[in-house]
């Protein structure tokens, strides 16, 4: 009943960064394993620098991982060539965060939306191309006439719809959505989230939904992976993360979400520390310095994901 459509195994990606004249090697992703079941939405939540975006970019081959494997339907993504690679490209598609930067200002919306098809020579005729563009624009709630418009004529929400249209023509198997609603106003954000939920059902999409916003993640995801400093620290069903967060970091994250409930107001100073520098990673658990449960073992040994409790929850913590 459940077939894994995308599998990421022990992915490691690092970058060279120059700071104050010195070169550092930053491990943006440090051994992440995920699997995406056909038809599900897996949310990846975490704060800036946790490596969630790099995971997404590795899957669409925008960055070259150091090690690890990415498989799409049992085919290795990283070594794909020729026809296989083309199939990957069309099946693994990305939606980007910034609706202003992700559309070329000099290309019409229609050209942008049809880009994957054009690159991979999917359309057999101009008429077919035009028809597919119109159909896709309609599917994302834009008038077909938008095809001849340019990005600067569109609002942020409309642009993001165009960005989504670009990712579903021709329809892929998996969408990697990297903070697709973070740059939008709340009222528009809800419209775009609804659209993504509708498309997922209509097209039977699987989705890797990357966001820093636990509210958005909780809304759209079936399962959630929480990342901290390049590693997954907790993964389980969305409800279980929201209601029964286990890892101390997940709990801190949940507690910090500003809820629209004035009965839980901030009374005074709250000091919960900051993540360690990426240039100077601690030896053991990266959360140790901020963790209320910290023990000696945490500073020496990196905790591995292990099952805890019910609902397929896995947590990387020594002290649970």
């Amino acid at each position: 009943m459940t077939t894994t459509i995308l599998r990421v195994s022990d992915l490691k990606t690092s970058f060279n960064v120059k700071r104050s004249g010195r070169k550092y090697r930053v491990n943006a992703v440090d051994g992440v394993s995920l699997s995406l079941v056909a038809g599900e939405v897996l949310g990846i939540v975490g704060e800036s620098g946790c490596g969630k975006t790099t995971v997404g970019r590795s899957i669409v081959r925008l960055v070259q991982p150091d090690s690890g494997a990415i498989e799409f339907k049992d085919t290795d993504v990283l070594s794909a060539r020729g026809q296989t690679l083309r199939e990957m490209r069309l099946n693994l598609r990305m939606v980007f965060q910034d609706p202003y930067a992700s559309l070329n200002p000099r290309r019409s919306i229609g050209d942008s939306v049809a880009e994957a098809g054009d690159i991979n020579k999917v359309f057999t005729s101009r008429a077919e191309r035009a028809a597919r563009i119109a159909e896709t624009l309609t599917a994302v709630g834009l008038e077909p006439s938008f095809a001849t418009r340019y990005p600067h004529e569109l609002s942020g929400g409309q642009r993001q719809r165009a960005g989504i249209a670009r990712a579903i023509l021709p329809a892929p198997a998996v969408i990697i959505a990297d903070e697709p609603v973070s740059a939008l106003d709340v009222s528009v954000q809800a419209q775009v989230l609804n659209l993504m939920m509708d498309l997922r059902e209509q097209l039977g999409l699987s989705m890797l939904f990357i966001s820093h916003d636990i509210g958005v993640i909780g809304q759209i995801s079936d399962r959630v992976a929480v990342m901290y400093m390049g590693r997954v620290v907790e993964m389980s069903g969305a409800r279980s993360i929201l209601d029964r967060a286990a890892h101390p970091y997940t709990r801190a994250l949940m507690a910090a979400v500003p809820r629209p409930d004035p009965s839980q107001r901030i009374a005074g100073a709250i000091e919960t520390g900051e993540p360690p520098s990426q240039f100077n990673r601690p030896a053991g658990c990266a959360y140790a310095a901020r963790c209320p449960l910290v023990s000696e073992r945490c500073r020496a040994e990196v905790p591995q994901l292990r099952p805890i409790g019910a609902d397929d929850k896995v947590v990387a913590c020594h002290n649970l």
Partner: peptide, 28 residues
């Protein structure tokens, strides 16, 4: 480094495509 160039690369575009469709038009 523009996002739309990255988007194009993620869909499998080659150097020629990037230059003709994305870089040159924005250089004009």
């Amino acid at each position: 480094a523009e996002t739309y160039v990255e988007a194009s690369r993620s869909m499998g575009s080659g150097t020629g495509w990037l230059v003709v469709k994305h870089i040159l038009p924005n250089l004009i």
